[in-house]
Design a binder for these strands. Structure first.
Lengths: 331, 331
DNA sequence: CTGAAAGCGCTTACAG
DNA sequence: CTGAAAGCGCTTACAG
């Protein structure tokens, strides 16, 4: 920078002003400085800037599992918001491990990030999260709620989504409906299950314990879980799946059992992944717009930085997308 | 840090030594310093350290598309290698855009990263990449080669993979085989196509221009591309797909045409995604172990940092995984 | 509108 | 084995 100053015939302070686009520098001087920067191939040192100013444009997106396609959508949306505002989003992947989560987050703090977006790993402790947030670092949780942490959280309206999906199946005449997939260690599982149970209860339908089978959220989880449910009780005619990915696994299992989704049995998902409309049959599912999550999450961060009161929980709207995976059933 | 020094009754230098785990500090002193650190909730400032030492533990993984499941696997593997060695991997997503690629990389340079892993966006210029690498930042390309850049690149043995896949189909008696999917703007497309053509040529089989149809690498790309090919010529009995994801899209199109993969028509993919073995029929494909890519890529970085000669190109081994998506054909 | 000086929190020689 | 001093490249008041 001192070289740039020399080359442009000005002082370091002036170069700094130009670099940060401060108003009130003569256009002429700006021009000279920029030319010098270009000619010298000067690279701004953010370590030095951050050290002095205590500010950073780095924002961390701490992702629980990069292999999850829906999360990928959310990350992409959030990155878009962040970049638009001059932040530098970096994503780190914790693979559902609390240990990696805490070591990665500690590292990120050392790097002086301006804020955290985080999908908390199963087993995340409320104290840990609250203390992280206290330390002048804004924290926004994505997709998952950690009870007692009181950190702003943006997630889909899981209850309503599953309620709508289940009601739709009930409206089609289904009476024996199973709820399949999802990890019981994470908040969204319970919310989605609640939505399912509420719809069943309202319709006066019974849900046996054996109609509910949690599983990994991978494709194979759906395959295993639905097989268990159907082995126990073949009278099931409708399957409400924790996510679209689980539903894909359910398709596989059903087909292997000689059942055609959309004809012999009804299947509904949650997320509306891009692939879902290309499955055969096209999957009926609950859509949650990843862009909405990204946008609301960004707003939370901004409110925090502006010292506004940040609402603790924000529910992102959901919408049932009817395609061809649900047949009706004779009354 | 000065507070820590005071609390521990030592000098700043000693604290620094302890922090970096230098040998030759009395165990007693180390103990005192660590206690002070814990009690004061001290957070190491990497900006300051990086400014002074010109070193960084940050490594950037510049990903062309976070929504690509195979790339996600590679990233996860690479992160594992990096973390094992004390690096802090951060991933930034460029969404196949050269502009975002250059702005993100410029930002990353300002943050003084220790190295770049990058899957170059279509249209990446060789000069840009070479200059990036010159600037004392090690650069390793992943999955894609940029001609003329002379930057170490780690990618699957695309030619061999597709050669094996095609030979397999030929061995099953197929004579009319199409090559479907892939973006012509990226090196891997041409390599895979070459492997396909080589196998066909060796077997004395003709390939018409209309048997080859590039497309987006998304699922829908496969659907569209295979429909085009089959509309032009229904005598095709085997489909070699650019990737597994493309093959999934091909499945959809085929089923809509009343054709069952593995019975009426043969389909083979490339990547061996986790889902592929769960498709029905299970997809025959070319496996490229993401762990191998991660490991070789890490080695390249290390060699560079150790001032060893880094071999320019490294091909990762491939393996045909036979499952049930390929039928044989009467001679 | 521009310059000279101090200081952010570390690490790096260099003494001792 | 430990301490005192200088300096990394910026930004921040403060003069002028």
């Amino acid at each position: 920078m001192i070289d740039v100053a020399k080359a442009a015939g000005v002082s370091k302070s002036t170069v700094s002003l130009v670099l940060r686009g401060a108003a009130g520098v003569k256009a002429d001087t700006v021009e000279k400085v920029n030319t010098a920067i270009r000619e010298l191939g000067y690279v701004y040192n953010r370590d030095a800037a951050g050290l002095r100013s205590r500010e950073s444009n780095l924002v961390a997106i701490v992702a629980n599992d990069l292999a999850n396609p829906y999360l990928a959508q959310v990350i992409i949306a959030l990155e878009g918001e962040l970049e638009l505002r001059g932040y530098m989003p970096v994503v780190v992947n914790i693979n559902e491990s609390v240990d990696r989560q805490s070591s990665m987050v500690a590292s990120l703090k050392e790097h002086n990030v301006a804020g955290f977006f985080i999908t908390p790993a199963p087993g995340t402790e409320a104290v840990w999260l609250r203390e992280l947030a206290d330390a002048s670092h804004p924290v926004v949780c994505l997709m998952r709620d950690v009870e007692g942490a009181h950190v702003p959280t943006v997630m889909p309206d899981n209850r309503l989504g599953m309620y709508l999906a289940t009601r739709y199946l009930i409206g089609l005449g289904h009476k024996r409906i199973a709820f399949v997939g999802g990890l019981t260690t994470i908040s969204d599982y319970h919310e989605r299950k609640d939505g399912f149970l509420k719809a069943m209860r309202e319709a006066g339908l019974t849900v046996k314990d054996s109609d509910i089978e949690p599983s990994s959220t991978k494709r194979q989880g759906g395959t295993i879980a639905v097989n268990r449910v159907m082995d126990r009780d073949a009278s099931i005619t409708g399957i409400v799946c924790f996510t679209d990915v689980v539903a894909y696994g359910v398709y596989t299992a059903l087909q292997e059992r000689g059942l055609t989704p959309g004809k012999d049995i009804a299947v509904v998902g949650f997320d509306d992944l891009e692939d879902s409309r290309l499955m055969s049959p096209a999957l009926t599912t609950v859509r949650v717009r990843a862009e909405d999550i990204g946008q609301m999450a960004y707003e939370r961060l901004q409110q925090w930085r502006d010292n506004q009161k940040v609402p603790e929980n924000a529910l992102v709207g959901v919408e049932l997308v009817v395609r061809s995976s649900c047949c009706s059933v004779e009354g």
